[in-house]
C-alpha cells in the first residue's frame, strides 16, 4: 500500500513540476530570517510613549499610548526596563516663545500652574489675547504673573523677570535660563527637566556662552531665544522613589541585575570637562536613499 502511494506521489510530482517549485519557494521563505532594522536607544528618540498630537495646537490634555520600550515602526524591543505605569495625560507645551522683533514686548498672563504626569517640571497655562498655551513653569512663577516676550536685542541688556523670554544677546551675564533654543529657528529646545537651569557665562562676537546643567559650556547664537529662571519642582532630584511599587507606577520595570559596582567595568572615570564648544548649525535634511534589492 505504502509503495503505491509513494509511486503515485512521484507521479504527480513529475507531472506538475512547477507546483513543486512553488512549494519549495514557500518552504524557503518560511525558514529565511527576516532582517529587521530597529533604532538604537540613546539617539534622542524615546520609547516610553507616543503622544497623539492633533493637527492644531490645543491645551486639551492629549491621549498617549505606552510603547513599553518598543520601536513603534517595527514593534521590536529597543529599550529595556520600560513598561507599565499609570496612564497619564500629555500637555502639549508650546516651545517657541514668539515675541515682536521691534517695539514693546508682548505680555502674557499665567492662568494656572499644573502638574503634568508626563514630565517632571510643572506646567503653566498662559493666556494672551484669545489664545491659551502651556509653557514650562519656573521656580518663582505664580498664578497671575505677567510674562514678557520679545525678540529685540537692545544695546544694554534688559533686566528680566522669571518666565520672561528674550534672545540670549538681550540677557545680562549670569542670568539663569531654561528652554534654550539650540539654533535660531531649529525646533530643539534644551533644559527641560525639573529644577535645572543654564547660566550665561560670557559673550564674544555674536555668540553667547552658556553653561548647561551638565556643566559643559557651549556657545550659542545671540538670537537664540531663552526663558529666564530656574525650572519648577526644584526638589525633584532629592525625592525618593520610595518603593518598588512606586517605580512600577512610574512605568519602569525591574533592573536587569547586570550592574556590578566592584568589578571596575562600571567604575567612575573622572575626567576634565571638554573645552567650550560652539553649537553646530542644524544638520541638513537627510538625502533620500534608494534601497536596492538583490534576490539571491
Amino acid at each position: 500500500m505504502q509503495s503505491i502511494t509513494r509511486l503515485l506521489s512521484t507521479c504527480t510530482l513529475t507531472l506538475q513540476p512547477h507546483h513543486r517549485g512553488a512549494l519549495s519557494v514557500l518552504q524557503q521563505l518560511r525558514t529565511k530570517t527576516k532582517v529587521v532594522e530597529k533604532p538604537k536607544p540613546g539617539a534622542g528618540q524615546q520609547f516610553r510613549r507616543t503622544v497623539h498630537f492633533p493637527n492644531e495646537y490645543t491645551v486639551a490634555p492629549l491621549k498617549i499610548t505606552h510603547l513599553a520600550g518598543r520601536d513603534p515602526v517595527s514593534g521590536r524591543m529597543v529599550a529595556k526596563g520600560i513598561g507599565g505605569g499609570i496612564k497619564q495625560q500629555y500637555r502639549w507645551i508650546k516651545w517657541v516663545r514668539d515675541g515682536p522683533s521691534e517695539g514693546a514686548p508682548q505680555e502674557e498672563i499665567v492662568v494656572e500652574l499644573l502638574n503634568d504626569g508626563c514630565r517632571t517640571a510643572k506646567v503653566a497655562l498662559v493666556a494672551v489675547g484669545d489664545e491659551l498655551k502651556y509653557i514650562l513653569a519656573t521656580e518663582n512663577m505664580r498664578e497671575g504673573d505677567i510674562l514678557k516676550t520679545s525678540r529685540v536685542i537692545p544695546r544694554i541688556p534688559v533686566r528680566p523677570n522669571d518666565g520672561d523670554a528674550y534672545p540670549l544677546g538681550a540677557l545680562p551675564v549670569g542670568t539663569r535660563i531654561h528652554c534654550l533654543e539650540k539654533n535660531p529657528g531649529q525646533p530643539c529646545h534644551l533644559i527641560h527637566a525639573a529644577g535645572t537651569f543654564g547660566t550665561i557665562l560670557r559673550k564674544f562676537d555674536d555668540k553667547v556662552v552658556v553653561q548647561l546643567p551638565s556643566k559643559r559650556e557651549f556657545a550659542f547664537d545671540r538670537t537664540c531665544m531663552a526663558t529666564v529662571g530656574r525650572l519648577s519642582n526644584v526638589e525633584h532630584n532629592k525625592e525618593h522613589v520610595g518603593s518598588a511599587q512606586r517605580m512600577r507606577e512610574l512605568g519602569n520595570r525591574p533592573r536587569s541585575g547586570l550592574w556590578k559596582r566592584k568589578e571596575g567595568k562600571h567604575g567612575r572615570k573622572i575626567r576634565r570637562l571638554p573645552p567650550m564648544t560652539t553649537i553646530a548649525p542644524p544638520p541638513l535634511p537627510k538625502e533620500q536613499e534608494i534601497k536596492l534589492t538583490l534576490n539571491l
Binding site: 502674557e108 498672563i109 484669545d130
Partner: peptide
C-alpha cells in the same frame, strides 16, 4: 482682563 481677551478659552 489684560492681556487676555474675553473670548479666551472658547
Amino acid at each position: 482682563l489684560y492681556p487676555m481677551k474675553c473670548v479666551v478659552s472658547m
